[in-house]
């Protein structure tokens, strides 16, 4: 067993667990988008960021890829973490505002503005479909192509792939194309209709003051606002 400190508590993790698995085992709800239990980890969406270490050496790492280490100090909800997550959500909303999953995340983390040019690209390059196809469906029909701002997911030569059995696994797992959000309009981008949660204690403290937020039930202090 590995012993580490999670949000000030001494917890134990099994050999080979990641920080995300450890945190989820203890009931902390760390948001993820590109993570799926049945697939290999990707570390692409950066929503699962947590802060490790203390003082000036503290840094943000993606908890889905970082293995639990002996004596590690992990904080899952510092101001820095939540601000970083908000930025990631804001960026993703600007790319794919029609995704219900991303809009829900925006509401949940109180992303109230999108300062980036809205691109309506319908793909955030989370790679779920690529891994789904290769790992679960044994297909390897789609993959990443090009690099940098030209990066995209497609079949070879953008034609129907011989490897594709049209199982639909890629569509099933896609956070953007399956569930559509009807809320955002051209001038608003953000929907924020389904739920709004804002931990008000962050205005006064550097860290969350209770575990309810992680359990998805941050309550009274928010509604008083």
């Amino acid at each position: 067993m590995i012993e580490l400190k999670l949000n000030g508590l001494n917890v134990k993790a099994e050999e080979g667990w990641t920080l995300l698995e450890t945190a989820r085992f203890y009931g902390l709800e760390i948001p993820t988008l590109c993570y799926n239990e049945g697939l290999s980890v990707f570390g692409g969406c950066r929503l699962c960021l947590v802060e490790i270490g203390e003082g000036p050496k503290a840094r943000l790492v993606s908890s889905c890829t970082y293995p639990a280490e002996e004596g590690l100090v992990v904080r899952t909800d510092t101001k820095r973490v939540i601000e970083a997550r908000r930025m990631m959500i804001e960026l993703m909303v600007s790319i794919a505002p029609n995704s219900k999953k991303i809009q829900d995340l925006a509401s949940k983390f109180n992303v109230t503005q999108v300062r980036f040019k809205v691109r309506n690209e319908e793909c955030v390059l989370c790679g779920l479909c690529v891994r789904m196809c290769a790992e679960q469906m044994d297909g390897r029909a789609i993959g990443f192509q090009n690099r940098g701002y030209k990066k995209k997911i497609s079949t070879p030569f953008d034609l129907r792939s011989e490897e594709c059995r049209q199982c639909g696994g890629c569509i099933y797992i896609c956070p953007v194309c399956q569930l559509r959000c009807q809320g955002p309009e051209a001038d608003t981008t953000l929907c924020n209709a389904c739920l709004t949660m804002d931990p008000t204690c962050l205005d006064h403290y550097d860290e969350l003051q209770c575990w309810m937020y992680d359990a998805g039930r941050c309550g009274t202090c928010v509604r008083e606002k």
């Binding site: 390897r140 789609i142 993959g143 070879p156 030569f157 490897e163």
Partner: peptide
């Protein structure tokens, strides 16, 4: 090697 990887 899967064709998609070669193209990647």
């Amino acid at each position: 090697v899967p064709l998609i990887d070669v193209i990647g």
